[in-house]
Design a protein around this nucleic acid. Sequence first.
RNA 1: AGUCCGAUGGUGUAACGGUAGCACAGGAAAUUUUGGUUUUCCUUGUCCAGGUUCGAAUCCUGGUCGGACUACCA
Length: 555
Amino acid sequence: MSETPRHFIQQIIDADIASGKHQKIVTRFPPEPNGYLHIGHAKSICLNSGLATEFNGQFNLRMDDTNPTKEEIEYVDSIKEDVRWLGAEWNEHYYQASDYFDRMHADAIKLIKLGKAFVCYLSLEEMRLQKGDFKTPGKNSPTRDTNVEENLAAFEKMTRGEFDEGKAVLRAKIDMAATNEYLRDPVIYRIRKVEHHNTGNKWCVYPMYDFAHPLEDAYEGITHSICTLEFEKHRPFYDWVINTVNTPAKPQQIEFARLNITYTVLSKRKLLELVNEKHVSGWDDPRMPTISGLRRRGYSSSSIRKFCEVIGITKHNSLSDVALLEHAVRDDLNKTSPRFMAVLDPIKLVITNYPEGQTENLEAQNNPEDPAAGSRSIPFSKTLLIERDDFIEEAPKKYFRLTPGQEVRLRWAYYVTCTHCVKDATGKVTEVHCTYDPATKGGDSADGRKVKGTIHWVSAEQAGDVEVRLYDRLFMHENLNDLAEDDDWRKHLNPHSMQVIRGKVEPALLKLGQGSRVQFERTGYFCVDKESTSQKPIFNRTVSLKDSWAKQVVK
RNA sequence: AGUCCGAUGGUGUAACGGUAGCACAGGAAAUUUUGGUUUUCCUUGUCCAGGUUCGAAUCCUGGUCGGACUACCA
């Protein structure tokens, strides 16, 4: 009878609490530190930490670092930073799979002693051949029935480094005829003579994910081990490990659908390639769907959490419209970001009847959505800069901006009436001229006269110069999971995903620190880039404002 | 091909045998010192075929379509 609908995982937990199966729940987010976190991970982080919060349970952050050849400390650091930034609180519950290597090794020996694991000397290729396929059952390994003592000794030799890589593995002994291939005597330990970023050279045998993961969960007392759909078929082996090793805790694996977003790639491999092939400037390029990229782009963590809430949790694959993400950030930034005026494509506006050389300061509200945000003062003078497309000499119907004879409001300033424009030899408009009504100071007319249009401006003399980076979607193709095999996803990169321009801004904008999020009135939400300095201010466009006039024009 | 999983407007989701609802997107209007915001209204949906039932998105059967799986990766 709750107002908010409950997704299937919440329902499972509701039932587990009701039945007394668990008094307290424990969830975890277990990234492999081999890449940066992206918005798809955010979905999982919000889910797991959100459940822990909702049920007053515990949330663990755990590095799943069981493969020393792919993982790096750089990634560990970025993952922690991103999870923290998202607001998921792990408190003291930070763990690393590599911290459990001793216990896992002991549990592998336990399996050998139970007659449930054996050392196998088949080559990779031989093992593949003997595995069978959908139709045909696999063949038993020649060493499948080796006795416990020999297996123990052989595993000891593996552990001491007496075999070369690939010469021996430890396998679970289950059933080579199982319809689920993950039960056909899967490999649980392999030899890797590589330094591990955490355990150094202590080990040369490392556990496989399918063996390690259920144990990690059990060691930590995870009650609900939530993962993505592709692990569904691994669940029988997950349960086999838990039950055969007979761990005190019995975590339950639950799968949900991973996130897909239109015009976006969310595979670690492709993101890595975007970085390595220099299609973007790095993992935190503002066009990247990584957490660090979104953050640099100006997304707030609350907008990302909101997005994750809105898309829901299900068991079927779907493709979320990127507009949902953009809506979440606009909605948040509308309420929270202060407004400023910035002109991105300037053209001169001369107020012919305004006194030459005079400057006055005008008061502007910082955020109409939030009176508590206060106000600021903006310099005004005879020569202003306005947006080039806020003037059209021969305007279409319903055009509310400047055109000869039309009166508009300069935001927070005066009503002005356009008189004419000045053009250069090529016919390009170089100046717009107008007259102002001194009685409309502040942007209001005492006689009740209305204007349809309000435009933004900056005072030419006082305006600051800034670099503005206009970002657009990285890809032009809607569903990048749906390409033909011979179709390279790189061919769908948007060549105009970043446009760098010079803008003119009101002075107050120059005082902002890196990461500040603002709205440029009538244009969009922007934030101060991390490369921004007082000598060279840089603004990133997070997302444009909705523009119903632009839609009108298209029609 | 086999096994498993799934299918609700254009998109993402809710409804747990009893009025198909919400959000986004799209459209129309009102308000507006941002053609923003806000408000109101509108368009569009239960994969198909049978069955059970007074009643089916929901349960059953069979199809169709989609996804996952054939690593000493996670």
